[in-house]
Measured scan of single mutants.
Amino acid sequence: ETFPLDVLVNTAAEDLPRGVDPSRKENFLSDEDFKAVFGMTRSAFANLPLWKQQNLKKEKGLF
């Protein structure tokens, strides 16, 4: 299941849709939104070091 970017960005855990893991908001973006937000594919993002993934998520309001 995916959700629009505005539902996930800068949203407190208690305000997220049911079933969304607040530590993994990026997994609930569509592939198109994911690429638009991070400028890379999911596989490229997954290959980044964890610290870099976290920094990007913070920068984009998805942490």
Rank of each mutant, 00 (worst) to 15 (best):
P49N: 02
D21T: 05
V7F: 15
E26I: 06
F34G: 00
E1C: 15
P49F: 01
L50W: 12
E59V: 08
Q53F: 00
T2A: 07
L5R: 05
P49H: 02
V37K: 01
L56H: 02
Q53E: 00
K35F: 15
F38Y: 02
T41M: 08
A36R: 12
Q54D: 14
V7W: 13
M40D: 00
K58V: 11
D15H: 11
R42H: 03
V7T: 10
L62P: 03
A36C: 11
N47Q: 14
E26C: 06
S23E: 15
F34M: 01
K60E: 02
L50G: 10
P49I: 01
V7P: 03
S23W: 13
E59A: 12
G39F: 06
L8F: 02
K58S: 08
N10R: 09
L50R: 09
S30P: 02
L5A: 05
F34W: 02
T41D: 13
F28V: 04
S23Q: 14
K52L: 13
A46Q: 12
A36Y: 13
A12L: 12
K58I: 14
V7A: 09
V37Y: 04
V37A: 08
F34I: 01
E59S: 10
R24A: 10
V37P: 00
N27F: 10
T11I: 11
L62Q: 04
K60M: 07
K35N: 15
L29C: 04
L62Y: 09
P4W: 04
P17S: 02
F45P: 00
E32M: 10
D33S: 05
P49L: 01
F45L: 01
K58C: 14
P22T: 06
E59D: 10
L56R: 01
D33L: 05
N47G: 11
M40S: 00
D21W: 04
A36T: 12
E1Q: 15
T2I: 10
M40F: 04
V7S: 09
K60F: 07
D6W: 15
K25S: 05
K25M: 15
K52A: 11
K60S: 07
P22V: 07
L29T: 01
D6T: 09
G39T: 03
W51I: 10
F3G: 04
L29E: 02
K52Q: 14
R42L: 04
E26H: 03
F63N: 13
N27I: 10
F63L: 15
L50S: 10
S23D: 14
L5V: 09
D6F: 08
D6C: 13
T11R: 09
M40G: 00
G39E: 09
K35Y: 15
K58F: 10
D31W: 03
Q54W: 12
